[in-house]
Computed example of a mutant assay.
Amino acid sequence: MLKKTLATLVLGTALLGAGSAMAADYAIDTEGQHAFVNFKISHLGYSWLYGSFKDFDGSFSFDEKNPEASKVNVTLNTKSVDTNHAERDKHIRSGDFLNVDKHPTATFASTAVKSTGEGTADISGNLTLNGVTKPVVIAATFIGQGDDPWGGYRAGFSGSTTLKLKDFDIQKDLGPASQEVELIISVEGVRQ
């Protein structure tokens, strides 16, 4: 009888612990402009060209005690590319680069999260861009979490990854210094 009671107590404690350690779901706060998908690429090896995607949406789940259980999903509108130069943006939207008429969205869906240190992790996932899906790894950093002034609860992260343009069937050759683009991401999510 004591064995059965002890086993029930251990199982109950484990289930309670598992329930409290579940990941929370967050919606990325794009409406409040607390999230950014930016990029930088070398311009002919002479300077950096910076840009961003203005229209995207997504969600993530996060459990500080078990970061490996986290998940991320993002969809962005490729037509929303903005480099602060209308003619260049038009060219980036063309078949030379993002081919937005055929591929109006890009997506990222995580497949694994691996802690790399205190507050850092590698987020592996599949990025679909220009109709091509490839695995990528985003080096992420936990920024912070807590209550907001509007009665919600928020968590924020930043991350970056480097993409080879040819891996995503972007064939326009801008020279040897411009073969890769760095994505720089900063997101703040509101717990649901």
Rank of each mutant, 00 (worst) to 15 (best):
A86I: 12
D169W: 08
F56H: 05
E64S: 12
E188T: 04
E180G: 03
Y26T: 00
T116M: 10
G58Y: 04
G131T: 04
V74L: 06
P135M: 02
A27W: 04
T75W: 07
T107L: 13
L15C: 02
T13N: 06
A139R: 06
I92G: 09
D57E: 15
A23C: 00
D25C: 02
W150P: 02
L165F: 13
D63N: 12
K3W: 07
K79H: 15
L49K: 11
V137T: 15
L98H: 06
Q192Y: 13
V10H: 00
D89G: 07
R93Y: 06
A69Y: 04
L16D: 00
E31I: 08
T120Q: 08
Y46Q: 12
R93S: 12
W48A: 11
F108C: 12
E64W: 08
T105Y: 12
D147S: 14
D82T: 07
D89W: 07
G189C: 06
N66W: 01
I41P: 09
P176L: 15
A139G: 08
D55K: 13
H91L: 11
E188R: 02
H91V: 10
E182Q: 15
N73A: 15
S115D: 13
D101M: 13
Y153V: 03
Y50G: 04
D63A: 15
Q179W: 02
G159L: 03
L49I: 13
L98R: 09
D63F: 02
H91I: 06
H103S: 13
D147Q: 14
N130A: 10
S80C: 04
D57P: 02
K71S: 13
I185T: 04
H103P: 10
